[in-house]
């Protein structure tokens, strides 16, 4: 089969962990759109979900940091964070090691990605799964793009990674869904937490839904850091999804800054061509 669904959403830990502190009207509107994203995902009847996230030192550290890594385990566990702090119970998430292996083997002809048979999920994956597969009944294949410990993969490579991922998915018999998770502009885990550059976000999202490769890869990391904070480095996950859906445009289902969540909360899906 092929890629049957693609989308992006935010993953900030406050979305679940500090839910009670957000404006209920905006929060519930955001949750509703995440619910709609889940319905679209389910309607695509996927056999597996590839989730491209920017993790936060749950598995990878500066002793041996891969630019790209894909999980190849039978199952995964998470969250690493305190359950009460994150508002998500510790659980086991099913994987599909055979499908992982076939995708990795297919991709290796074009791109050097690392693989991992052991992987603990942090909020970057658990928060989206909490809304998209709340019963943890869909096999998940995690992918990490290093967005935390520079040097980081250049943006054109992130787009190319997405292209290669798409070709690998299209070569499999399974119906595969793809979700990218991350923030756009944000300064998480710094004294600037809660600051959001809405104009920058809306401009980025306009480039994203248009799938305008040249404009998506036009940022330097220095510009992103200045205008969108270190959290802005996570645009790599969105750009990977854009690369995987080259030729398709997207639909922005929701965007609103929610400062206590420390991010402009985003839900978007791609209209697969």
């Amino acid at each position: 089969m092929s890629l049957v669904f693609a989308g992006v959403c935010s993953h900030a830990p406050g979305i679940t962990g500090r839910a009670h502190r957000a404006d209920p009207a905006v929060r519930d509107a955001f949750y509703a759109k995440l619910g709609e994203m889940r319905e679209r995902l389910e309607a695509a009847r996927p056999d597996a979900l590839i989730i491209v996230a920017a993790e936060h030192f749950a598995n990878f550290f500066m002793n041996n940091m891969p630019a790209y890594c894909m999980g190849m385990a039978e199952s995964y566990e998470g969250p690493i964070e305190d359950e009460e702090w994150l508002g998500i119970r510790h659980t086991t998430v099913p994987g599909d090691s055979d499908l992982s292996r076939r995708i990795i083997e297919s991709m290796m002809g074009d791109i050097d990605l690392a693989y991992a048979e052991e992987w603990k999920f942090d909020h970057g994956i658990m928060v989206p799964l909490n809304f998209l597969t709340p019963r943890y009944d869909l096999p998940v294949i995690p992918v990490n793009v290093n967005c935390q410990g520079p040097p980081l993969t250049p943006l054109p490579r992130a787009y190319e990674f997405g292209r290669v991922l798409r070709r690998a998915c299209d070569a499999q018999a399974e119906r595969i869904a793809l979700v990218g998770t991350g923030g756009i502009s944000h300064w998480p885990a710094t004294p600037n937490s809660g600051v959001i550059n809405e104009a920058w976000d809306r401009d980025f999202l306009e480039r994203f839904v248009a799938n305008d490769r040249e404009r998506l890869i036009a940022y330097t990391d220095a510009e992103t850091f200045r205008d969108a904070g270190q959290g802005g480095f996570e645009i790599r996950t969105f750009i990977t999804v854009a690369g995987a859906t080259e030729g398709s445009t997207g639909e922005l289902m929701f965007y609103a800054p929610i400062p206590i969540f420390a991010v402009g909360c985003t839900v978007a899906t791609m209209n697969l061509a």
């Binding site: 962990g17 936060h56 690493i80 305190d82 702090w85």
Partner: peptide, 20 residues
């Protein structure tokens, strides 16, 4: 790195506002 520190602050039980 803030992501390491945020998780560590949670681990040692600091409330969000206290940590910021």
């Amino acid at each position: 790195n803030g992501q390491l520190l945020m998780h560590y602050a949670a681990l040692i039980g600091q409330e969000w506002d206290q940590y910021i």
